[in-house]
Design a protein around this nucleic acid. Structure first.
Length: 423
RNA sequence: CGGAAAGUGGCUCAACUUGGUAGAGCAUCUGGUUUGGGACCAGAGGGUUGCAGGUUCAAAUCCUGUCUUUCCGACCA
């Protein structure tokens, strides 16, 4: 990509939001735009990141046999009435945006259990069709009472939501475990330290659920983690009435060996049981031709939160002041940014072409009237992991490469650069 | 929804206490000198001070209302 086409704004890093520096940088350079509280437009970098994160999620879910589909964002009222949740979502909890016009009444999808169950029941007619897991990656809409932290808690956001259908509780449990491990693989590939925790309604109604909490110093939640036993709990569990019994169930006898972490919830999985199947009157036929309810699970991952977490966890500072951020090489939309002095333009363009030929996405800073120094500074606000600096010292063979995360510099040939940034 | 703070050119802020022609830095545009860690000189454009009402000869400034944004809390498949 030619940097001139991105039209980023020049910014002053001395006034950056210290709590959410990475996202504030993107706002200030124009790569994120807030229309109103909780409603954002994303620029090129964010959108590219979304596709990359999305692909990792798709690959890992496909590996365990999930099927990607797409459910409507504009959901008819009757669909929600079929499960009896219309009033719950529009009155008691008032979380769903609604539309009412001469076509009828609708809700903007905050989630999709109803649509998924209807979709599934139309084709999973027999026990022979089970199990099945359908997932989608799409925008969700929620009337968050209080938005927070830019893309950490907005009112519209992109989420992966999956819905599983099984014959019985035992199979549902297996599917749940399958998804648990798929999630761990996803977060591992994203380079995010994750703690699976049992969440608050794990004790209620016989339901099982877990949260996937990412360790970050700007989280909304506090988790307690037992390193040895590899068990995590949300700190809110400690305020439960039945906490002792609850902790005992998990095998936690001594709270003092739990370490406390600030975290943000990136994923949330639930065993739903037969709740939706029964309430909506949608069944499959078993071996004897009898109608049986589906045992369901639902699984969510917030993509915006993942991206925000990666960006904020990779903010780089110099002498306590924010310098920018540096994305992990396997996540970065652009692996290396080429900056050059005007009289070395030819060599810089050759490097850019060579990288392109090898399928390596690079940025070339082709803007005119920028000093080499200011061009280098802009690499940090775009999160590019490496900078290729072609200046006075350039001899046309060796290229000075800087790792933005550490500031370390190397001298490399084009071939070595290709190897360095290749996955 | 309870509590708190803030709204002044694109951005960060000043002027408000004590009412009297709305300023600076950055950014943008033009010309010139620059170009290895966010350069310099000269010039230019850009604001009905969130909105509405009130007090006053006169309101960014005082009063009332309202809207918006942010933060804390509550809430959160």
């Amino acid at each position: 990509m030619k940097l001139s086409s991105l039209n980023i704004k020049k910014i002053d890093l001395s006034n950056i939001d210290q709590n959410y520096a990475g996202q504030d940088i993107l706002m200030k350079i124009g790569e994120l735009y807030q229309y109103e509280s909780g409603i954002y437009g994303s620029g090129h970098l964010w959108t590219k990141l979304e596709r990359i994160v999305e692909n990792i999620i798709i690959e890992e879910l496909d590996k365990v046999g999930c099927i990607q589909v797409d459910f409507p964002k504009l959901q008819p009222k009757k669909v929600w009435e079929q499960s009896g949740r219309w009033d719950l979502y529009t009155k008691q909890n008032d979380i769903m945006f609604t539309l009412n016009n001469n076509f009828g009444e609708y809700g903007l999808a905050p989630t999709a259990e109803e649509c998924a169950t209807i979709f599934a029941a139309n084709r999973l007619l027999s026990y022979k069709n089970l199990p099945a897991i359908y997932y989608q990656i799409s925008e969700k809409f929620r009337k968050e009472i209080r938005t927070r932290g830019y893309l950490f808690r907005p009112r519209t956001f992109v989420m992966m939501d999956a819905y599983s259908f099984d014959k019985n509780e035992e199979d549902m449990n297996k599917t749940y475990q399958l998804m648990h491990h798929a999630y761990l693989n996803i977060f591992k590939r994203l380079g995010i330290s994750i703690i699976p925790t049992v969440s608050d309604n794990g004790t209620m109604g016989g339901k099982v659920s877990e949260e996937f909490q990412a360790i970050t110093n700007l989280g909304e939640d506090t988790v307690l983690y037992d390193n040895e036993k590899n068990i995590g709990i949300n700190k809110e569990v400690l305020s439960f009435e039945n906490r002792d019994e609850y902790l005992k169930q998990l095998g936690i006898n001594d709270i003092s060996c739990l370490k406390e972490y600030q975290s943000v919830e990136l994923g949330n999985n639930f065993q739903l049981g037969t709740q939706y199947s029964t309430s909506m009157g949608l069944f499959y036929k078993d071996e004897t031709g009898k109608e049986k309810p589906y045992y369901m699970g639902c699984y969510g991952i917030g993509l915006g939160r993942i991206i925000a977490t990666i960006i904020e966890n990779n903010v780089i500072k110099e002498n306590e002041s924010v310098k920018g951020f540096s994305l992990p090489i396997n996540i970065a939309p652009y692996k290396i940014q080429i900056v050059y002095k005007e009289d070395k333009k030819e060599f810089a363009e050759k490097l850019y072409q060579d990288l392109n030929k090898h399928g390596i996405s690079a940025i070339i800073d082709d803007r005119i009237d920028y000093s080499l120094g200011s061009r280098i500074k802009d690499c940090y606000v775009l999160g590019t992991p490496y900078i290729a600096i072609i200046g006075n010292q350039s001899d046309g063979v060796m290229i000075e490469v800087e790792e933005t995360k550490t500031g370390k510099k190397f001298s490399k040939t084009i071939e070595e650069i290709i190897e360095l940034v290749s996955p």
